[in-house]
Nucleic acid binder design. Structure first.
Length: 472
RNA sequence: GGCGGCGUAGCCAAGUGGUAAGGCAUGGGACUGCAAAUCCUUGAUCCCCGGUUCAAAUCCGGGCGCCGCCUCCA
């Protein structure tokens, strides 16, 4: 029994997770910037965090999971220039930034729930923690890490010796690279804004008073301030997408470690890889800027079950890029429906389990999830259970439901809403007419009706209880 | 220019030294009047070349291809 082993970006190694506080794990997850609909790629990082949380719970830890919502200050270009995304979205749509944030936050929460993500213990918004962010910026100022230029208060990365360590940055090379210096007065290219001043003369929708004047917080500040508030200045695990390693998390670490004088701020930093879009050799990451985003509702419109997206997610390891395309999601949908059907079949089974029957599967399942959350392997174990004829129904049920605490596929209560439940007098009549023709052995007539219905996407299912039908 | 990752059957993918998990699709079989659904079953010398080793998809070197980060992005 080796315990839970996780890949830690901070050390670039798999390490055994040992909670700072006995039996209790504190996890912080970088949530969405709610200026636009959250797409399937965004959902992947929520699913990843949720998988982590579920594994922690199954391993017997108490978990405090904090997820933030960025509803201000995330700029369109880089950390220092460009428009605030919330402000820009508001301007485009002629609505209040708060309205937009509320709408996309609600959509995001709904999607999260639909793919089976557990509710976080704390859901916190940047705009509701302005005071905490100012407080942290003041701490940094008091400790000499900041300087002021015309458009804001900046963090001086040269003052933090470990700055490049986390992301293994080559700051020298960066200066000659693609990065273009845009902000007049910045001392180092990597320096970033803690507080941005509101532009004189133009009134922002979102701005606050601060010791440095009216303005708004830099994007990175919220995560440092809120994680410290809800989890303490040192906690166990911080999660987010890989894209955040080099900038957002690097800056967050600088703020937290310098402001609160701790090291490390989070023991484990974990990052999920991206969803790529495409098939075969050509792939592109799914992102708003590439214009190839899909949201959960698009899948649902296609007849895909929301939990089938979770099943899809579980089929690949979280640290690998995963290729998304129609064939892939449809096959996941089929796979999920079949697995669910198997679970439904044994749901009501009662009786006693033979421990020796369960043990090998339990051991292999646990081994998989404890090895850096290897969901594909865990899912494979579930399928082996389904196919093992030496298991009794109740043993199968026991194993599947136990595994589902991690898989989160709602195997215990989800229903396969066969369209066969639907009623449509016209179709019902046709189905009955076919039944009658079959009884009379008028095969040609029976097949004609079946084919005609198939033409309009209605499929007849012959069962021992009689014929039913479903769409698709 | 710097950094990182990937390349395993038609597709999604596990597997990091001892002759390759799982799912979907395909072919075959059972069932069916024929089908559908369901169940059983079927298939890979692991991108190429060279090396280390008794043994490599797995390690090393060199190619080729793809993706990502260093600028907003999960």
């Amino acid at each position: 029994m080796q315990g839970l082993v996780l890949y830690n970006t901070r050390t670039r190694k798999k390490e055994i997770l040992t909670p700072l506080e006995p039996e209790h794990l504190r996890i912080y997850t970088c949530g969405p910037t709610v200026y636009a609909p959250q797409h399937l790629g965004n959902l992947r990082s929520q699913l990843f965090a949720d998988l982590l949380k579920r594994v922690c719970l199954v391993e017997g830890f108490r978990v405090t999971h904090v997820v933030n919502i960025t509803d201000v200050g995330h700029l369109t270009d880089d950390a220092d220039t460009g428009e605030d995304k919330m402000e820009a979205a508001a301007k485009r749509s002629g609505r209040r930034a708060e309205e937009i944030a509320a709408e996309y936050t609600a959509q995001w929460m709904r999607d999260r729930e639909r793919v089976g993500c557990l509710k976080p213990e704390v859901l916190c918004k940047a705009t509701e923690h302005i005071a905490e962010q100012i407080e942290l910026a003041q701490r940094l100022e008091a400790r000499g890490y900041t300087y002021r230029i015309t458009d804001g208060i900046y963090f001086d990365t040269a003052k933090f010796a470990r700055y490049a360590e986390f992301a293994r940055l080559d700051l020298e090379a960066q200066e000659f690279g693609a990065r273009i210096e845009k902000v007049e007065g910045k001392r180092n290219p990597a320096d970033f804004a803690l507080w941005k001043f509101a532009e004189p003369g133009s009134k922002r929708q979102q701005e606050w008073d601060s010791p440095w004047g009216r303005g708004f917080p830099g994007w990175h500040l919220e995560c440092s301030a809120m994680s410290a508030k809800y989890l303490g200045t040192q906690f166990d695990i911080h999660t987010g997408g890989v894209d955040h390693v080099a900038v957002h998390h690097t800056n967050e670490i600088a703020q937290s470690e310098c402001g609160y004088e701790v090291h490390p701020s989070a023991q484990f930093w974990m990052h999920n890889e991206f969803l790529s879009f495409g098939k075969g050799d050509l792939h592109e990451k799914m992102s708003k800027s590439k214009g190839n985003v899909l949201v959960l509702a698009d899948l649902v419109a296609q007849g895909i079950l929301p939990l089938a997206f979770r099943y899809f997610f579980l089929q690949a390891h979280y640290r690998q890029q995963q290729a998304f395309h129609d064939e892939a999601i449809v096959s996941a949908d089929t796979g999920y429906r079949r697995l669910l059907a198997q679970a439904i079949k044994v749901r009501d089974a009662v009786g006693v389990c033979v421990q020796e029957q369960l043990a090998p599967y339990q051991a292999r399942f646990r081994e998989a999830i404890c090895d850096d959350l290897n969901a594909p392997r865990a899912l494979a174990v579930a399928w082996e259970v389904v196919h093992d004829a030496t298991l009794s129904e109740v043993e199968r049920k026991t194993l599947l439901l136990e595994f589902d605490r991690v898989l989160g596929l709602d195997l215990a209560t989800a229903r396969l809403e066969e369209a066969a439940q639907e009623r449509d007098p016209r179709i019902d009549a046709l189905v009955q007419a076919r039944e009658a023709a079959r009884k009379a052995k008028h095969w040609a007539e029976a097949d004609r009706i079946r084919d005609a219905l198939l033409q309009e996407g209605i499929e007849i299912l012959d069962t021992p209880q009689g014929a039913r039908w479903k769409k698709r």
